[in-house]
Design a binder for these strands. Structure first.
Lengths: 332, 332
DNA sequence: TTGAAAGCGCTAACAG
DNA sequence: CTGTTAGCGCTTTCAA
């Protein structure tokens, strides 16, 4: 390993001077700058980040905590964050929390010990008080943690409303909802959006709402039971795309035509929705963009920019595809 | 931040003693050990990893380089690695290389500067010589880099053979192949496996092989053209699952029944294959297990265990699902 | 069994 | 404009 001393010796200057040139910091004569630059090149010197971190108490590293990278919603999110951060000179530590507070705490501990500069967190279990102990810049993505933490997410309730209205618009008369997990706020909000639209309809019944736990298989099972009990249902709004895939499978195994007999819409806009037949309509989130903005804000916070925004509510967009491309539409 | 000095003062011992107890290293009297332990608890002291790294020239951090976490094959892989490493006390830095040698080099530079202890790499572009410059333990996952680097992957050629044979076994008479990118070795191997089975068949023609670039849409387009030019094709082996989804879509838009008129099999065994209708047959890789073993070996290498294995060729398994569950089977 | 002290490689006063 | 030096927080000889 070649160190700053080696460079100093090679260039016949002091380490301070070398430090000045590699950090473009303080005055240094043009000639000595060149001399040092040449020495650096000759020795292929790369400054040691660890030593720098120790002194500066910062690491040019951030942590990304997601529940599970295996869940198709997160890769894009993580990618957006990582893409932006590497450009800004930061590396990203990936943490899969499984929504487990123990693990979240463990990761946060490790981050603190490594002088990690900040964190981007997707979680419903982390609470503000815990975070305060760690005292580092944090932004929340997809799910909010606390009013004081900049949050980057869409308006889920609004999206839920849009999905449900869309089913109504194409002529559905009996619209059911496959609901996400109770603990996850955005799932509740999507459900609320659904209720906003249907709860005063004469046909609405509580039994039109069944839990699918953001899981494809559970959703498929729940849909089977739902449709057997309520064959009159002609539209289903699934709380996320993965569950919508489950609905689609259930419909297919019951020999129900989609969209003619049953329209389906999901939520999130993950790539999978384009891969099925029929392709799935969905409420699409600007996932990549959200994550880039979250990363930008985190960097601003870390670098002490006071004008860092306090978060952003993004618009979601309805993407109509075959699964709601109903013939009924012509009827309307 | 509470440091080792604070603890030393609190326990009225020297920092050396505190260091000894936190590292269970060297002799320390039972009583003083307790005293120190108590002080640590009282102060909620956590040792600073950066300082430790500086001295020990190691960071308890490893890098994972994958082409793109957004590609559905990689999340499981990354998850397996991260799961194992965190248990062993290592954190994982995620790097998306986009198969770009520039980026790979950049990441490797950063790793070196951060005293990263080792790397797990999925790449076809990295060459051994480059790696040698960095002089750190490395293991290759999914794609081999060099004979001297422990590699964890399946036998792709064998898998290609199994896929093709399976189509033959269920009665297909004209089997085509959608091929992955030329630069990617495993794609070539799968193709070779296909050739092993079909090249001496009287019906075989070069035009039964078309490029799909591991991309769903390209694969769908290629399949359309292929089937229009060669309606006699009754079985397609796609070089990976994502392309198999493309084949499925193409078939559906041409109104070709799967599997009755066209059987389809993919490769990799990603979760998506279970989500479609019909469900896709595939050659499944033990992705999670491969990644865990790769992580284990990397840790062994880092910790200087000389008995670290030199890699492992895993078995792939045929998973038969609806897309090859042909009626022809009964005919045979 | 314990402590003093010398670094790990770098940055930032402070002098000159 | 440049060099000397004192740390950043920790580990590890070396003495005691």
């Amino acid at each position: 390993m070649t160190t700053i001393r080696d460079v100093a010796r090679e260039a016949s200057v002091s380490v301070a001077t070398v430090s000045r040139v590699i950090n473009s910091n303080g005055y240094v004569n043009e000639d000595t700058r060149k001399k040092v630059g040449a020495a650096i090149d000759r020795l292929k010197y790369k400054p040691n980040s660890v030593a720098r971190s120790l002194y500066k108490k910062e690491s040019k590293t951030i942590g990304i905590i997601v529940p599970d990278i295996t869940n198709p919603y997160f890769p894009q999110l993580v990618r957006g964050v990582e893409d932006h951060l590497i450009k800004k000179g930061y590396t990203s530590i990936l943490c899969n929390s499984d929504e487990d507070p123990e693990k979240e705490r463990l990761y946060l501990d490790v981050m603190k010990q490594k002088y990690v500069d900040g964190a981007i967190i997707v979680s419903n279990t982390i609470d503000e008080r815990l975070l305060q102990e760690y005292d580092m810049p944090v932004v929340a993505l997809d799910r909010s943690i606390h009013k004081d933490i900049p949050t980057f997410a869409i308006d889920n309730r609004d999206g839920g409303r849009a999905a449900t209205k869309h089913l109504q618009d194409i002529g559905c008369q009996r619209i059911a909802h496959i609901k996400g997990p109770e603990q996850i706020k955005n799932a509740e909000e999507r459900y609320t959006g659904y209720l906003d639209v249907v709860k005063n309809q004469s046909w609405f019944r509580d039994s039109y709402v069944v839990p699918g736990d953001y899981d494809q298989k559970k959703s498929a099972r729940a849909t089977m039971e739902l449709l057997e009990a309520h064959p009159e249902i002609d539209g289903i709004f699934a709380g996320n795309d993965v569950m919508a895939l489950g609905v689609l499978k259930a419909a297919e195994s019951l020999n129900i035509n989609v969209p003619e007999e049953l329209a389906i819409i999901g939520f999130d806009g993950i790539d999978l929705t384009e891969m099925t037949t029929p392709e799935l309509s969905t409420i699409s989130q600007p996932i990549y963009q959200m994550s880039v903005e979250a990363a930008e804000t985190l960097v601003a916070l870390i670098e002490g920019k006071t004008n860092a925004q306090s978060g952003h509510v993004f618009p979601s967009t309805l993407i109509q595809r075959q699964s709601t491309n109903s013939v009924k539409e012509n009827v309307t």
